[in-house]
Write a protein that binds this DNA or RNA. Structure first.
Length: 574
DNA sequence: CTAGGGTTAG
């Protein structure tokens, strides 16, 4: 009774008082189980050794309880030893006991042993297959997992979920979704809270709102108004990261209960969309309902930095401990350095780094370098780059950033040299890519891309667009277009032309053109870029949004830019 | 006996 009530210590004491002769297998097992379920796995394992010493008979449930404990604790030594001696004793293993043994081996990474038990089993249940599948996927990869999965005589929803989560988790989003539709439409399985969450998280990552909506419909069908907090949060995050911040807010408002994580997701979303004011306004409301944590303050500071709310940001940062009871972490320092740096207060930012009680990392310096680049402080930038290269020698972004700074200052020779250094070392810049979801398909573009089946139409549209832009007063900004072959002298007309062409065929412009020709008039365009949007594209797309009367939402590496009627939601502060 | 979830700095 005490054991099942969770009074472990009392149960253990009482158990000690009873003479050993009066205790049977069930008593011992009950107590072991009790310890195992209260996180006291070592005590459970010790109890098992004691039990063996006393010569008490070991049954099916005892074996299962023991191996479950070893699996959870990752205690291979005890598990392997116990299994070995049990086999020597000639103990009979039921299917369930074998499953528990295999699970232990699998969780500890001993797939050879797990497979051996599996091969030797005369009878295998679906669970046996699922246990092996889980181990294979975790230790041998999704590909090997697929082989086991296809060999399974019948598949349960656990097996399907393992495969779907593994695909999505390894970046094979498309394959994951294919499996999902097979599971739901082909095999008639339902989805549960766990599957909803992992799928929505994948949709958020890839910005796939079509799939996200499909899941949302199923969530409503399955749970109705009784929305689960975690599923609700996953929905909020998915809509926010797909550029639908208003929908995210609606889902958030309808959530019956909200915890810190839900608030964090909402505040983060608003921050990414440049709604710093909304974040600052919502924060006090949040405090009435939930206690803010590290991530909340990061979201708030981040929002301040992206909106230029410098004083507000300082206020939150300096009150982290006194008001919010939080110890400042390196992440908070990084946000603060960013707030000061973006606002041009570079000396203060550098002072803050010098005064930090934690050693600064590459994020902190990276942020400072970016700010130096924006504010043209190349001497300071050079110094920071040296630090950064030591911390992260293979990173190309920092070199490019500094190179762009030189280019901006007219020091094209230095800019070119820096790129040469990268080239000589064989380090290549991560290519910029832009994606646009149209008609349930993802269309991807790189700079100067001619691979798309509708390339011709896209480039015709591009020419038309550039012409319209020019007559609206657009002047291409080729400052950052550095060619490795140039000698740093005057730019001649031919090269100017070449540079302009390079800027025109940036991936985000191609994606916009494709969006313009493949969607109905006035429809909003949603584009995702893996790097930060470039200066020239930013000013060009502002004008595009006006002359074509389109809302264009671009998610770049850092945040969202929502272009509408010639303006951007970032207010050009980025 | 099997899977197991939501927020995370530049």
């Amino acid at each position: 009774m005490y054991a099942s009530c969770g009074a472990t210590t009392y149960a253990h004491k009482l158990f000690g008082i009873i003479p050993h002769s009066h205790k049977d297998t069930v008593d011992w097992t009950t107590l072991m189980n009790c310890f195992a379920h209260h996180g006291m796995l070592n005590t459970a394992i010790n109890l098992f050794s004691e039990m063996r010493k006393e010569g008490v008979r070991v049954d099916d449930v005892t074996i299962i309880v023991l191996f479950e404990a070893c699996a959870r604790l990752g205690n291979v030594a005890v598990g392997v030893q116990a299994h070995g001696s049990m086999v020597k004793m000639g103990l009979g293993f039921t299917v369930k006991a074998c499953n528990a043994v295999m699970d232990m081996y699998g969780k500890c990474g001993l797939m050879g042993e797990a497979r051996q038990v599996f091969e030797e089993m005369k009878e295998k249940s679906v669970v046996s297959w699922t246990v092996i599948l889980d181990g294979v996927v975790k230790w041998e990869g999704v590909g090997s997992g697929m082989v086991v999965f296809s060999e399974m005589p019948d598949k349960n929803e656990v097996a399907w979920t393992i495969m779907i989560a593994a695909h999505i988790g390894s970046g094979f989003t498309k394959e994951g979704f294919t499996l999902l539709s097979e599971m739901v439409l082909g095999s008639g399985f339902g989805l549960n809270k766990v599957t909803f969450c992992s799928i929505l998280s994948a949709c958020a990552q890839s910005g796939d709102v079509v799939m996200g909506r499909w899941v949302h419909v199923r969530v409503l069908k399955a749970m109705g108004r009784e929305m689960d907090v975690k599923v609700g949060t996953a929905l909020v995050d998915m809509y926010a990261k797909s550029g639908r911040i208003d929908t995210a807010f609606k889902v958030f408002e309808y959530m019956p209960q909200k915890n810190v994580v839900a608030w964090n997701a909402m505040l983060n979303g608003l921050g990414m969309h440049g709604r710093g004011k909304a974040v600052v306004d919502m924060f006090p409301k949040m405090m009435e309902e939930a206690k803010p944590d590290d991530l909340t303050l990061m979201a708030v500071l981040n929002a301040c930095s992206h909106t230029g709310l410098v004083d507000q940001g300082c206020h939150y940062f300096y009150n982290l401990e006194s008001v919010y009871g939080l110890t400042p972490k390196i992440e908070h320092y990084a946000c603060m350095v960013d707030i000061l740096g973006r606002a041009g207060r570079l000396e203060e930012a550098e002072m803050l780094i010098k005064k930090m009680p934690i050693p600064p990392n590459e994020v902190v310096f990276g942020s400072l370098l970016a700010s130096c680049s924006v504010h043209g402080k190349f001497e300071q930038g050079e110094g920071i780059l040296k630090e950064l290269i030591q911390m992260d020698p293979l990173n190309t972004e920092y070199h490019i950033l500094l190179s762009n700074m030189y280019a901006l200052a007219g020091k094209r020779y230095k800019a070119t040299c820096l790129r040469q250094v990268l080239k000589l070392r064989g380090i290549r810049k991560v290519p910029g890519m832009s994606c646009i979801h149209v008609g349930g398909q993802v269309h991807q573009f790189s700079s100067g891309d001619k691979m798309h089946p509708q390339t011709q139409e896209i480039y015709i549209k591009l020419d038309e667009m550039i012409q319209k832009l020019r007559s609206a007063g657009y002047v291409p900004n080729t400052t950052f277009q550095v060619f490795s072959g140039c000698d740093g002298g005057e730019v001649n007309a031919d090269e100017m032309e070449e540079r302009e062409q390079a800027v025109f065929s940036h991936s985000e412009k191609l994606a916009v053109c494709f969006g313009l020709i493949s969607t109905r008039a006035n429809a909003s365009l949603y584009i995702f870029k893996n790097l930060r949007i470039c200066q020239d594209c930013h000013s060009a797309i502002k004008i595009v949004s006006k002359i074509y009367n389109r809302e264009i939402v671009i998610r770049d590496r850092n945040r969202f830019h929502c272009f509408r009627q010639g303006l951007c939601s970032c207010s050009d502060y980025w």
